[in-house]
């Protein structure tokens, strides 16, 4: 970034006419660059550098601490939660996408479904947690109605405040996100391809197995990865729903910085943040690769 912001570096390949004017031109980008340097790059540097430093200089103890059993459990839980909600969200979202895509492309149903997905994919956090508490919480309307009809969903204890509850609640934003990401790919499928399959004597099975399936596979996998990263990064919903402890990694990071539970361990929080961002970065890179594959035939 600093290299790009420095005229001496990027200006080399180009004949400089009137050096003073050129440097004045660069001044126009300074406020923005200065702001992102302080509030985007400085925090990143603080995390990356801070993870390797303790009170006595360079140390790897922050990373060694990641082997604490509750952190290992939280990391595994985070990965399980993200994987479950990514796969379930992708499958259910794909069904909904198919239902939307097979309708009238200019119809009201489609327009409502698409705008609702846009809103609901962003709908997370405290309000979402409250919505599910009001629905299937111990005083929620659906829970009370089911209890009246002798259906006890909490036979083995209240799972809403724990991982299974998070899985259900996360689907509320994962499914709409899948619709948003996957719909363009499904729209790219031409009816002519199905007709071509049929004229060659193929049935529904052949069409899905040999034509639509392979075409949609990269888009589907890519969307699943995006959903995985999305669930992994989510903090607010879980924080509002889970009353105690830290079953997932984002909640453990929060515990380590705010010292609400246990010790204030800033270096340790940074090491956990590095782990989280590393997983998200790998997933995002894979997503970008698959996205490029999809884009090849989508136009």
């Amino acid at each position: 970034m600093t290299a790009a912001g420095n005229p001496a570096v990027t200006g080399v390949g180009r004949p400089i006419v009137g050096g003073r004017r050129l440097s004045l031109t660069w001044v126009g980008a300074v406020p923005f660059l200065a702001y992102v340097a302080v509030f985007l790059f400085l925090p990143t540097v603080i995390i990356a550098a801070g993870a390797f430093f303790g009170e006595n200089g360079f140390t790897l103890s922050n990373f060694a601490n990641l082997s604490r059993s509750y952190i290992v459990t939280a990391t595994l839980n985070s990965i399980i939660l993200s994987a479950v909600t990514a796969v379930a969200g992708a499958v259910l979202g794909a069904l909904l996408t198919y239902a939307i895509a097979t309708g009238n492309p200019k119809g009201v149903v489609r327009r409502i479904a698409v705008s609702a997905s846009g809103v609901l994919a962003q709908f997370g956090g405290v309000t979402l947690a409250f919505a599910f508490l009001a629905t299937i919480g111990p005083a929620g309307i659906v829970y009370l109605w089911m209890a009246e009809h002798h259906l006890n969903i909490y036979g083995n204890g209240i799972w809403l405040y724990d991982l299974p509850g998070l899985e259900v609640v996360y689907l509320y934003f994962q499914i709409p996100l899948m619709v948003l990401v996957f719909l363009p790919a499904v729209d790219g499928i031409r009816p002519q391809w199905r007709e071509a399959t049929e004229s060659l004597g193929g049935g529904s099975w052949h069409y899905w197995r040999y034509v639509a399936g392979p075409l949609l596979a990269p888009a589907f996998l890519g969307a699943t990865l995006l959903l995985f990263a999305n669930a992994l990064s989510a903090y607010a919903t879980a924080a509002a729903l889970v009353n105690q402890g830290g079953p997932i990694l984002p909640l453990q990071i929060s515990n380590a910085i705010t010292s609400e539970v246990g010790l204030h361990e800033p270096g340790f929080a940074k090491a956990q943040a590095v782990v989280l961002i590393a997983i998200v970065a790998i997933i995002t890179a894979l997503y970008a690769v698959l996205q490029r594959r999809t884009a090849r035939w989508l136009q």
Partner: peptide
């Protein structure tokens, strides 16, 4: 500064890939 356009775009979209819970660790100090 058309040469800077890609850089500005890249920087601007960067926060999408950094989870808020990670960013806040850097904001804390």
């Amino acid at each position: 500064l058309p040469r800077l356009r890609r850089v500005i775009e890249l920087i601007s979209l960067l926060p999408l890939t950094i989870p808020a819970i990670v960013l806040v660790v850097g904001f804390w100090p």
